[in-house]
């Protein structure tokens, strides 16, 4: 599996990360090394094996659907990098003319 710039671009966009200059070369070689390492799983015969998704057999225990106020508005906004008294503030989403 070759790690080229196009793949790095695609993954960076999906992961919302950017790699520039030296960092970009580094992630290319690291990813290719990491992939090569996990590549050996392909040799294992998993014909007819179901993926293991849930670790316990206890799923499906339901609880009552009751609304609970676990975090007040004030507490929820306390850690925000930018907020007013009611809302999180974010940079402009729509530009003029859009």
């Amino acid at each position: 599996m070759k790690i080229d710039d196009a793949l790095i671009d695609k993954l960076s966009e999906l992961a919302k990360l950017e790699f520039v200059g030296e960092e970009r070369e580094r992630i290319k070689s690291d990813l290719s090394r990491m992939l090569q390492f996990v590549e050996k799983l392909k040799e294992i015969d998993t014909e007819g094996v179901n993926p293991l998704i849930h670790l316990t057999e206890e799923y499906g225990s339901l609880r009552e659907d009751r609304a609970e106020n676990t975090l007040s508005k004030g507490d929820a906004l306390k850690n925000a990098p930018s907020a007013n008294s009611d809302y999180f503030k974010v940079p402009k989403v729509l530009k003029k003319g859009e």
């Binding site: 993954l11 990360l17 580094r26 996990v38």
Partner: peptide, 17 residues
């Protein structure tokens, strides 16, 4: 994020893509 966290997010994003 530091470099190791970014590496793992990138590999994780790849295997899920």
């Amino acid at each position: 994020f530091g470099p190791e966290v970014k590496r793992r997010i990138m590999l994780g994003t790849f295997v899920l893509s």
